[in-house]
């Protein structure tokens, strides 16, 4: 894994006006994440994990401070540029899978490539490769409603990795899965992290996920309580 810098936040704040008061969701976040890291944002509900993930993913913008992702200042990005950044460089995995219900597994995975206007032959190759990575090539014609929770999340992972992004953001990816499926999903993501050198950032408070993390950033009430690298020996 290289050590090149991929994400950097400086004095990052996210505040929400709540009537007469202001809710500080993120409070002076200063972190740097390098390429190829496998990072978990952990902490209790309401600690700011998803908010930070959303800002890194250019789905939201900071109230104050700076968030630089893949050389793009999130706070200055237009809607179009933010969409372009997400389309070309960032993959998302959601807690509730968020598969498009009317599309087949194949079409769901193919979708990001359609947005990138990739030629059909190349699309077929990339989609099948992604489905093989997650072990669902044989279910390519199924609809999301015909899949189990674990299978749906693996489709979501395939959709996130199919365009081979530099960064994958996963928001509670195992929260809706049982222990066995959670393990399979995490194994899949570790494999992709190692094989493709893709940077993974998780927002999670699932204990099952913790043991796979190589770096754990603990958030509490919007600030970074602890930022620790976890060596394999400690796991």
């Amino acid at each position: 894994m290289s050590n090149s810098f991929l994400i950097r936040t400086e004095k990052l704040y996210k505040k929400y006006p709540m009537g007469p008061t202001v809710l500080v969701a993120l409070d002076n976040i200063n972190i740097t994440i390098n390429k190829g890291e496998f990072v978990g944002l952990v902490g209790p509900s309401g600690s700011g994990k998803t908010t930070l993930l959303n800002i890194i993913g250019s789905l939201d913008s900071p109230t104050e401070g700076s968030a630089e992702v893949l050389g793009n200042k999130i706070e200055t990005l237009s809607h179009q540029d933010a969409a372009k950044l997400r389309n070309n460089h960032i993959g998302f995995i959601f807690q509730t899978f968020n598969l498009l219900p009317v599309y087949t597994v194949y079409e769901n995975v193919e979708f990001p490539l359609l947005l990138q206007d990739i030629p059909p032959a190349k699309r077929i190759e990339l989609v099948m490769q992604a489905l093989e990575w997650v072990g669902l090539a044989d279910r390519k014609d199924s609809k999301p409603s015909q899949l189990s929770g674990g299978q749906s999340q693996r489709v979501a992972i395939a959709r996130a990795v199919v365009k081979k992004p530099e960064l994958i953001l996963a928001d509670e990816p195992t929260a809706n899965l049982d222990a066995k499926n959670s393990h399979n999903i995490m194994e899949t993501m570790v494999k992709l992290n190692e094989e493709l050198d893709t940077t993974f950032i998780f927002a999670t408070h699932d204990e099952k996920v913790m043991k796979y993390l190589k770096r754990k950033i603990t958030l509490n009430d919007g600030y970074v309580q602890r930022d620790e690298n976890i060596s394999l020996n400690n796991q």
Binding site: G57, L59, H79, Q80, A83, K84, R86, N87, N88, F92, F94, T96, N98, L100, P101, F111, P112, L115, Q116, R159
Partner: peptide, 14 residues
Amino acid sequence: RKEMGTLMALGMTR
């Protein structure tokens, strides 16, 4: 609306 959010997350513009 959730599907719209997903599409935007996948890179579709408004």
